[in-house]
């Protein structure tokens, strides 16, 4: 795999993802379509591990995807790539912090970005949900959907809403145990 290409793609993600770690997800999803570095299934596992380990979510996801695509060098290069744009942008802003905060172009652009990012992330999750809930080769409503997985999903969503303060790792461990207990979804 071309490491320059990897660097370039993650530099792009660092430059255009606004609003925290989860905002990198739509871009990672795009990489699945564009290259064969990792699959949708890998991506779901990557999110699970990134949510369960310390550190910023966006950095964890970048090192993991880079590593999956191109080993240790890949992990390092993807991380440097995603960090470099914001490093440069922040260095520029640091000298005029107050002005930047009050600039009305910045404020209004952010007003548009904030709500759009919610839509972008939702669309990215669809790809991962499809993998778990739609069965390949099925016909008819009963066979098309993986009802067992959907039932488990609904229970987990309820649990998550009920215990929002709990760390996501607990839900992920429950998912793993149930997955092993039922012999896979």
């Amino acid at each position: 795999m071309n490491l320059w290409l990897l660097f370039f793609e993650f530099f792009k993600i660092g430059l255009f993802s606004v609003g925290g770690g989860l905002a990198t997800l739509p871009f990672l999803n795009k990489l699945v379509e564009k290259y064969d570095w990792f699959t949708s299934g890998d991506l779901a596992n990557i999110i699970a591990v990134s949510e369960s380990t310390p550190g910023p979510l966006g950095i964890n996801m970048a090192s993991y995807t880079g590593f999956t695509g191109a080993g240790i060098m890949g992990g390092i290069i993807a991380t440097v790539g995603i960090v470099l744009p914001s490093y440069l942008v922040i260095l520029i802003i640091a000298s005029m912090l107050q002005k930047f905060n009050e600039n009305r172009y910045v404020q209004t652009a952010f007003a548009g970005l904030r709500s759009s990012v919610v839509g972008l992330i939702s669309a990215a999750v669809l790809g991962i949900m499809e993998l778990s809930f739609i069965q390949s080769g099925g016909s008819g409503l009963l066979e098309l959907f993986n009802w067992k997985a959907i039932a488990a999903f609904l229970v987990l969503v309820l649990l998550r809403f009920r215990f929002q303060k709990a760390h996501p790792i607990i839900l992920i461990v429950i998912g793993a145990v149930v997955g092993m207990a039922v012999g896979g979804f």
């Binding site: 989860l22 997800l25 299934g41 779901a44 596992n45 999110i47 699970a48 949510e51 919610v118 992330i121 939702s122 999750v125 991962i128 949900m129 993998l131 778990s132 997985a149 488990a152 999903f153 987990l156 969503v157 649990l159 998550r160 809403f161 929002q164 996501p168 839900l171 992920i172 429950i174 998912g175 793993a176 145990v177 149930v178 997955g179 092993m180 039922v182 012999g183 896979g184 979804f185």
Partner: peptide
């Protein structure tokens, strides 16, 4: 491990849905 991850994927969907 594969069975565990099939369950983990579902849990990840749940955590992200609530984050969204």
């Amino acid at each position: 491990v594969q069975n565990a991850f099939s369950g983990i994927r579902i849990a990840v969907c749940a955590t992200i849905l609530v984050s969204i």
